[in-house]
């Protein structure tokens, strides 16, 4: 023990997780949005081969985890991964590495650049101590929501608000056919829009042959207070059409409210603090800086009533 020298700075944001075996740790890598260059992937494989037991684990939040790493090798592992700018992730009561889908670059459903958002959040907020519990952020490019945004502390879902320029409409009916939410129906030879049924997926804009349906607003639907684990909560909508460039500031504001309101509550997730304080407190706090996007009212995070013990 006395001759083992470890640079404790490397452990600051966590990412080194104790395993069962003596001296062995899992090293969780920082892969925002789950995208990494093949050069980095190659370097990870090289390091895993050299210091691990010949395999890695893909975490459920898009990270690569090196398995069976001896703690005496921490500095060498960090240094060698650094040759390809690969960093170690965070764990514990901190802002975690954000997840994201492929986004709008190559996925035809993508409405916003989720990869860019994930990188920005990772750059500005990575590892920020919450003082209370973990804090997860996820980005979905559209309402299909493959990344399950509503089970993050703050979850983002790409959205567009459609508007029809009737003069450009050729009455083909493709928009009505495409709208699975039933928000568009043909009324005679023109589409009629029922706004309260629209979930902002943009299918009408994408299918419209003439561009008569246009995107009037673009941004994120923001759900807050979700989590999974022992007692899951589904986050609820606090803001709509939040512009991509306001994402980092918005999360920082949610964090500030959480840090203040969870004071003395111990290891408690954001969703449970919202349940205690009521969603209006957070809505009001966010409205100060984001008045045009924050809703007038919302519902608290939703408890999933199917958990053990049964009959509770």
């Amino acid at each position: 023990m006395a001759d083992a020298k470890i640079d404790l700075k490397n452990l600051k944001a966590g990412g080194f997780i104790k395993e069962r075996g003596k001296d062995l740790f899992t090293v969780r890598l920082r892969v925002p949005g789950g995208r990494l260059s093949v050069e980095r992937l190659g370097k990870i494989a090289e390091v895993a081969k050299k210091y691990g037991q010949g395999y890695v684990h893909l975490s459920v939040r898009q990270s690569v985890e090196l398995i069976n790493i001896n703690f005496a090798d921490f500095d060498a592992v960090v240094a060698e991964l650094g040759e390809e700018q690969q960093k170690v992730a965070s764990c514990g009561a901190r802002v975690r590495v954000p997840t994201a889908c492929g986004g709008c670059e190559y996925n035809p459903n993508g409405l916003v650049d989720t990869q860019k958002s994930a990188l920005e959040v990772d750059q500005h907020l990575f590892g920020t101590p919450t003082g209370h519990h973990k804090f997860k952020v996820g980005f979905a490019g559209c309402p299909f929501d493959c990344p399950k945004s509503a089970i993050n502390d703050v979850g983002f879902q790409g959205a567009i608000w459609p508007e029809l320029t009737e003069a450009e409409c050729i009455s083909c009916g493709l928009c009505a056919k495409s709208c699975v939410e039933g928000a568009i129906a043909m009324d005679g030879d023109k589409p009629a829009f029922t706004p309260e049924k629209c979930i902002y997926c943009g299918d009408c804009v994408k299918v419209c042959p003439t561009g008569a349906w246009k995107s009037a607003k673009r941004g994120y639907t923001v759900r807050i207070g979700g989590k999974w684990g022992r007692r899951p909560l589904v986050g609820t909508v606090f803001a709509t059409f939040l512009p991509e460039e306001k994402v980092v500031d918005f999360i920082a504001a949610v964090l500030a409210w959480y840090q203040e309101k969870a004071e003395g509550a111990g290891r408690t997730r954001l969703g449970d603090i919202i349940l205690q304080q009521g969603p209006d407190s957070l809505l009001e706090y966010l409205r100060k800086d984001f008045p045009e996007y924050v809703l007038d009212a919302t519902i608290p995070p939703q408890v999933i009533e199917t958990q053990m013990p049964l009959g509770r």
Partner: peptide
Amino acid sequence: PVKNVPRSLKADGHKLLGLKETDGYY
């Protein structure tokens, strides 16, 4: 099919001219 194919063809750069329903197909 009627929801996906037209959209994909439009994204490929073709011009959609119209859609008509006929006896349960389009």
